[in-house]
Design a protein around this nucleic acid. Structure first.
Lengths: 199, 199
DNA sequence: GTCTATAAGTGGATAGAC
DNA sequence: GTCTATCCACTTATAGAC
C-alpha cells in the first residue's frame, strides 16, 4: 500500500465517521480500526486530530465543487440547477434523517468547540452560497442574488435539522415542493408581488 | 446548602455548558468546577452523565413551557404570538451566533451519538410544534396547522444554523421580516393564493 | 453534604523495532 | 510503512474520612 493511498483511505473513513458520530466522538482508534491500521502506524500519516480534520474538510470541498460542476453541466436552466441542490435533501434523506446535514452539523460542532478549523468548515457553506448566487444572477436577480442564495441555504438547513429530529419524510417532500413553488415565483423579476421579494 | 438547591445549581450550570460547548465536550469536572463542587461530592447528586442530561432536558422543558405560557398571555392575536416565537432569534442573537439553537444543536448531537435521551430532546421541538399548531388553528388554519407549524420551526432552525456559520445579523433580521410577511399572507384563509399554501 | 484519594479506562501522542 | 510498547493527561466513577 502506498502512503498516499493509505492517506486517502484514512480521509474517507474519517469523513464518514465525523459525519455519522461527530468530530469529538470519533477517536483515533475508531478511524484506525475502520481502515485496519494500528494506532502507531496511523500517526505516520497524520500527526494530530486537527490535521485529519483539515484533510477531511479539504476533501469535502473538492467533492462539493465536483458536485456543483456536475449540476452546472447537468441542468439547462438556473432554476433547474437550484432545484438540483434542493433535491439532495430527498436523495440523501436516509443519511440526513440519521445524522443531519454534513455541513450544518460540522459547523455547529466546531462553533461550540471554538475550533480553529471552524472557518474552514464554513467555506463549505460559502461554496454553495457562491454557486447559488451565480444561479440567481443568471435568473436576472443580481440585485438580491445573495439574499436569495442565503434563503435557499437557510431552508435546506432548517429542513435537514427537523428531518433529523422528526424523521418525517412527508415533511421533507412537502417543504421541497414549497421551495420549488417559491422558486417559480422568483423567476419573473418584474411581476406583481407573488411571495415577498427579498430586499 | 440543601441538596435540592445544590442539585438545581448543577442543572443550571450543566444546561449552560451543554449549550455552549456541547454535551460530549463537557466533562463532570467542568460542571463541578462551575458550581465549585469537588468531583467526589458531585456524584452524591448525580451518578452518571446521562442522569444530568435527563435533568437538563427536563429543566429545559419546564423553562420552555413557561416561556410559551408567557407568550400566550402576553400577545393578543395568534399572529403576534407566532411572531414572539420567531423574534427569539433576534433576542438571543448573540448566543445563537456563537452556539446555535439550544434545541436544534442538542437534537443533532444526540442523534449522532445515537443517545438514549435523543427522543426526550426532540420533545422540546414537539412542545414548540404543538404550541404553534394551536396558534395556527386559532388563525383558522386547522386543516394545515401542523404543516404551517413545522414550516415556522424549519425556518427558525435554518436561520439559527446559518447565523452561527456566517454571524450575519442583517441576514437574521431580513429572514425574520420575511417570516412576518409570509405570516401576514397566511392570515386570510380564503383569499387568492399569495404565497403557496401548504397542502 | 462535602471532602480527598484513588481506581480503571480511554484519549491523543511518541519511540523505536522490523 | 507498519508494527508493538509505552507515556501522560484526562474522564468516569467509587470508597471512605470528616
Amino acid at each position: 500500500m502506498t502512503a498516499s493511498e493509505t492517506r486517502r483511505q484514512i480521509v474517507v473513513a474519517a469523513d464518514r465517521l465525523f459525519y455519522e458520530r461527530g468530530f469529538e466522538a470519533t477517536s483515533f482508534a475508531d478511524i484506525a480500526g475502520a481502515v485496519r491500521l494500528s494506532r502507531g502506524n496511523f500517526y505516520y500519516h497524520f500527526r494530530t486530530k486537527d490535521e485529519i480534520l483539515q484533510a477531511v474538510i479539504a476533501h469535502r470541498i473538492d467533492a462539493t465543487q465536483a458536485v456543483l460542476d456536475a449540476w452546472e453541466a447537468g441542468a439547462d436552466s438556473p432554476a433547474e440547477r437550484i432545484l438540483s441542490f434542493v433535491r439532495i435533501l430527498i436523495t440523501n434523506r436516509t443519511a440526513i434523517m440519521a445524522h443531519g446535514c454534513p455541513v450544518g452539523t460540522l459547523c455547529n460542532e466546531l462553533s461550540k468547540l471554538d475550533h480553529a478549523a471552524k472557518d474552514d468548515a464554513v467555506r463549505l457553506f460559502t461554496l454553495f452560497r457562491g454557486w447559488l448566487v451565480r444561479q440567481f444572477t443568471a435568473l436576472g436577480r443580481e440585485a438580491d442574488a445573495d439574499a436569495l442564495a442565503l434563503h435557499v441555504l437557510m431552508r435546506s438547513q432548517g429542513v435537514a435539522t427537523l428531518a433529523t429530529a422528526f424523521r418525517d419524510e412527508a415533511f421533507v417532500r412537502r417543504e421541497i415542493d414549497d421551495v420549488a413553488a417559491w422558486l417559480t415565483a422568483q423567476c419573473p423579476p418584474a411581476s406583481p408581488p407573488a411571495s415577498r421579494p427579498h430586499p
